[in-house]
């Protein structure tokens, strides 16, 4: 497989686009579950970058670095989903809704 600089731009563009979609979702969606989905998209954009640069690393050990980092990030993301869903359940029980704009207890 050959990838020239053009394709490189394309791939980084892909992860950039995914990150943009994720950020868009994070700031616009009010449903907590959608928020979690948007976060997952953003995180996956980052993981994709790790994997991509690992594949084209100039030496093997830094390639392993990239893949190892990707594994750690995937683990953390899975953890985050677990906690996030726990919050969803708690929020649902307390407020009867999972609309994040209604949880304004942080207000001064």
């Amino acid at each position: 497989m050959t990838l020239d600089p053009f394709t490189t731009a394309g791939l980084v563009g892909l992860s950039g686009a995914l990150l943009g979609i994720g950020l868009f979702g994070i700031v616009t969606r009010r449903n907590f579950i959608l928020l979690l989905v948007a976060i997952e998209i953003a995180i996956n954009a980052a993981v994709l970058n790790f994997v991509y640069f690992a594949a084209f690393a100039s030496n093997p050990s830094s390639g392993l670095n990239g893949q190892s980092a990707a594994i750690v990030v995937i683990g953390l993301a899975a953890t985050e989903i677990a906690v996030g869903l726990a919050i969803v359940l708690a929020l649902n029980r307390i407020r009867g809704s999972i609309n994040v704009t209604e949880a304004t207890a942080l207000k001064l």
Binding site: V27, T28, V100, T101, T104, L108
Partner: peptide
Amino acid sequence: MRGIQSGVVLDYTAYVV
């Protein structure tokens, strides 16, 4: 400044972004 503190998570995320 306290007007910024809406308590809405989405606004805070917007500031982070």
